[in-house]
């Protein structure tokens, strides 16, 4: 009963916080458009590169034409946009400027406000991402192979991918409690992510060893898995397995995060930030 009530009040918090964050985000409409250029450009560059490679090989690489690459990178744009976060870049500032200390006095875990800010940003950026996707589709003519079941399965897979990536980033952000050189740590994580998440290229094009590693690491489940699902490249069994692995990772990282958070807070209250 109490669990249910606390869930209800958390829902209330999310409703109010999302509303205010949306209002705040609205103030940065101009910055949003500029940010969009960066978000669209990266997949566009990879698309251009792979299309050029396909053209050099007589039109297709491993059976993938430039239209298949277009579908892949447009899907990648959307999935990446919906799963990315920036908490690890701001956490150091958050600790040092004393905002954390203030938030610790409130009877709610600080991760909730980060989730709300993230969602508010995404809700609003969708208004520019969707037109961008339509425009890119008109220009690059992606080859979609949608299937009803995989479209349906895509939604939970996307949600899990977001949860996994967000928890991972949030745990990574906690490094800021121990070092001031978080930028280097983030850069390192981002580089590994770039390779093993499928952001650089469809993972099937990677050398077999790397493909195997990509199945072991959590990054593929944050990006490539939902992309492959929506592109209709997976069997129903593979989809179910994938989601099971996602949930397994979420549970593992959640445990890790709780542990690190507890140690970090103990440290924080001992040295006083």
């Amino acid at each position: 009963m109490t669990a249910l009530r606390s869930l209800g009040s958390l829902g209330d918090y999310y409703r109010v916080k999302l509303k205010t964050d949306l209002a705040i985000e609205m103030q940065y409409r101009g910055a949003m458009l500029i940010w969009l250029i960066g978000a669209v450009l990266e997949p566009l560059v990879f698309l251009a590169v792979w299309s050029a490679a396909a053209a050099a090989q007589g039109g297709a690489i491993d059976g993938l034409t430039s239209h298949d690459f277009a579908a892949y990178f447009i899907a990648s744009l959307v999935v990446n946009q919906l799963t990315f976060s920036w908490v690890m870049w701001e956490f150091e500032h958050y600790i040092r400027e004393g905002e954390l200390a203030a938030d610790l006095l409130r009877p709610i875990h600080p991760i909730h406000q980060d989730i709300c800010e993230n969602w508010a940003h995404k809700l609003l950026t969708m208004t520019v991402v969707i037109p961008a996707v339509i425009l890119l589709s008109l220009v690059f003519e992606p080859a979609w192979h949608f299937e009803a079941w995989s479209l349906l399965a895509f939604l939970p897979a996307l949600l899990f991918a977001f949860a996994l990536r967000f928890l991972f980033d949030w745990t990574l952000a906690l490094i800021a409690f121990w070092t001031t050189r978080t930028a280097s740590a983030n850069q390192l994580a981002q580089t590994v992510f770039l390779f093993f998440s499928g952001r650089l290229a469809p993972l099937s094009l990677f050398p077999p060893v790397l493909v195997t590693i990509s199945f072991i690491l959590p990054f593929r489940w944050m990006l490539a898995f939902p992309i492959e699902l929506i592109l209709g490249q997976l069997t129903p069994a593979q989809a179910l397995w994938g989601m099971a692995i996602q949930l397994g990772w979420i549970a593992a990282i959640l445990l890790l995060m709780r542990f690190v958070w507890r140690v970090a807070i103990r440290r924080f209250s001992a040295v006083g930030g």
Binding site: W50, A52, A53, A54, A56, Q57, I61, A201, L205, F206
Partner: peptide, 10 residues
Amino acid sequence: VIFGHTDNLA
């Protein structure tokens, strides 16, 4: 990765 699949790019 790319030159694993092609010998030239443009």
